[in-house]
Design a protein around this nucleic acid. Sequence first.
DNA 1: ACGCGTCAAGTACTC
DNA 2: GAGTACTTGACGCGT
Length: 319
Amino acid sequence: MTLVRLGYVAMSTQLQNASPSQTMTFKQFSQLNDKEAAIGKLERIANSNLHNCLRLLKHNVAHDIKFFRFSSKLIPLANHPELKGWDFINPLSEALEEIGHYIKEHPMRVGFHPDHFVVLNTSDKDVLKNTFRTLDMHRTLLKGMDVSPKHRCVLHVGGAYDDKEKALEQFIHNWGLTPRKLQELVILENDDTIFSASDTLYLCEKLGIPLVFDYHHHLANHQKDWQEDWERIKDTWGNSPLPIKMHISSPRSEKEFKAHAEYVDSKMFINFLHEIKGSVKEIDCMIEAKKKDEALFKLVEDLKKEPYIEWINEGSFSI
DNA sequence: ACGCGTCAAGTACTC
DNA sequence: GAGTACTTGACGCGT
């Protein structure tokens, strides 16, 4: 028997005016002459984002969704190189604590997927430095919520830089330069163009990092069937306090295969569940679809037609 | 209210 | 080396 928990990403298509990703671009920031006022505006935006984030968590709990990815755009320009020295955490501590209290009252799995400029295998010192800074920001946010930072940030391996093998070794090299408190945040995901699940496993096993298996990326980029690697993927989670995590999405079309569809193909998901059934006690599936929570709810509707699924609540079931 | 162009800290590709 | 595309949500402008 396998307990499956469903989650979704960052924002809701159902809850109105609840964006956790409002922003100010660097260009806009640069054009403001009064820097103090500009920073004040950034802080107001960040507080509004956190407020909406809490509203999203409440919306989730109302629908039994206990698995959620936070937006990584909660604090605009938080780690922009030009805004070094801005103490963005202090003005946000109350809002973070409020989110933290809510998570304690309603236990749930939360995490981040930092943006594409967080690149751990870069050979550019400045990019690596900013990667560390951004990871540290994510850690600080989690700490501010009193959530254990362990295994909360999904990253891709990074760029290929014309030589995949060398790029993997560069990751290992940079990992040695990564502070331990940042290492423990990281979990790695197979991507849809360069590093397949097998490639990523190489790093995960060598460095003791859990692998977040993205089924859609796997379909777009693989050397062999995922079933051959499934045991190894599971094992990367052996030392994690959290259950194994996966990403689930469907291709938008044959032509735009790598793009996310609005909804998840429930047949595909059901087939996958049948294959892994019983192989793990618990698995958390992150639904990555354009329609966000609406896609999750639609998937649940579809799954409810399957007689062998035992529902625990609207957001989790056993199979 | 809606459509369209702009913006984004990285990487990849083309010329 | 410069320019463009990728991706995706937000924003601002024009209608």
